[in-house]
Design a protein around this nucleic acid. Structure first.
Lengths: 263, 263
DNA sequence: CAGTGGTCTAGACCACGCG
DNA sequence: GCGTGGTCTAGACCACTGG
């Protein structure tokens, strides 16, 4: 037998989804039905559907009215360049909100401030000692009420002591980038990293991720002419987000990409 | 019971990995040992370890000398900006190779040319009709002999008919970007997209991906002043790659990031 | 209540690959 | 050979939720 049974079942169902015979949001046959249909035990059927869950193609909902459904793919676009313009007219949080609303969704955010010890990874980016203290400003972002991404921005403690507003547990109206610029710490360069990986259990809970949903990590280190001033780690739910970034002549790009024309 | 047994087992093993009690490359207890250790059936043990496989933390190797091992994380860094400089001194393929070698690995590539009908997604980016023909230049990239990423670059058919070298089934020495520039199609802008998702079965095979490994998609649309000239889709194995991009003052960034200093 | 998926058990046979 | 994980079966009990 070249291909195990549970893979054959998975392949057949996947084919039905791709061909459109099983439409988005539509219910798959129940597990007992699939057992009959493929003459397989329940565990084999579950192995098959587990493959599809891991591919992000279907989701399983318990309960009388539940079942297995073809997952919807709504993709929010996050513009890496608009999010944080050094000379931009407004705060990052507002920039994100307006982006979401422009794409026809409802945006909300939850803000939180803590003091943390820096992990080795983050300390390296900020060029400070591991385990030194930093201000963590966390922003959980919701689209249509569903958690969509978490942005953690870390500032070295000495910078926060100089620019005390960073310790405010509220949103900063003009945006932290602008605030820092006003205090002589304008950012002149960014180092951006993009990583795809599976979520930790904490991230899965925080973002309400199904099994088989990866996250997209966006790590931005911001530099003034003298030092790294911040590092922000944004964890995007992979099934609902996409990051976009443009380079070169903005006029040309706008000409060929309608959605870039506004603003 | 608040937490199912298989999650408790997964949590304990995960903790051992994170704390370093189980080092990278080290073997976990065998399934029978875990059954005894946690007083669980084999399927429950397998459910537990399946969680860790899906998180990319461990891998399972069949055979007498196999077992379950803590996965190694080697991360190759791909520089989005260096890869394709319009005025760069050499071909993209060479740029990629030198990047890999500078990071201490061995690089190789496989090249392939086909004519394809464009999917709706890609046709939209090139502003042509869906299913119209395009030249697909595929490059499978290997790091230390292991497939690491696949780059598919699509050129509209009419452009390939004008710049016939695009139909060559071999690598283009000076690089396609430069070739196009020499023929009056210099690219003046890029639209980059970053997406994290689970691989299709084909991608998993092509890249040799374990279950529970996501891919990082990098989609670059290149524009001349008159039109979209190309769209390239790079599929990175998520567990072995990271994309980096910088903005702003390159001198400042280089000053604070040693690895950026060279070149 | 009835039917969904979630969890768990106790077995079985197989392919693989080192000794 | 023999121990590893890979696959598969047949059953069981549970939590949840709409009718």
């Amino acid at each position: 037998m070249p291909l195990p049974k549970y893979r054959q079942i998975a392949d057949e169902i996947r084919q039905q989804i791709k061909s459109g015979r099983l439409a988005v949001g539509q219910r798959l046959p129940t597990e007992p039905q699939l057992q009959q249909q493929y003459d397989a035990s329940r565990n084999t059927v579950r192995d098959a559907t587990a493959v599809l869950v891991n591919e992000g193609l279907i989701e399983r909902v318990p309960g009388r009215s539940g079942g297995m459904m073809v997952r919807e793919k709504v993709t929010l676009t996050f513009h890496a360049h608009r999010a944080e313009m050094p000379a931009g007219p407004r705060a990052e949080t507002d920039a994100w909100r307006s982006e979401v609303e422009r794409q026809g969704y409802e945006a909300s955010q939850q803000f939180q401030l803590t003091i943390e010890e820096l992990s080795t990874d983050l300390a390296e980016r900020l060029l400070v000692e591991p385990e030194s203290a930093a201000v963590l400003r966390r922003c959980v972002r919701y689209v249509n009420g569903q958690p969509s991404s978490v942005q953690d921005t870390y500032y070295p403690m000495d910078l926060a002591n100089e620019v005390r507003e960073l310790l405010s547990p509220r949103d900063i109206p003009q945006g932290t980038t602008r605030l820092l610029a006003e205090r002589g710490h304008s950012q002149v360069g960014y180092y951006d990293e993009y990583i795809s990986r599976m979520p930790t259990p904490e991230e899965a809970t925080l973002l309400g991720l199904q099994l088989g949903t990866p996250v997209l990590l966006f790590i931005r280190t911001g530099y003034t002419s003298k030092r790294p001033a911040r590092v922000s780690v944004t964890v995007f739910a992979g099934d609902r987000n996409r990051i976009v970034s443009t380079h070169g002549d903005p006029v040309v790009i706008a000409k060929f990409r309608q959605e870039e024309a506004s603003e």
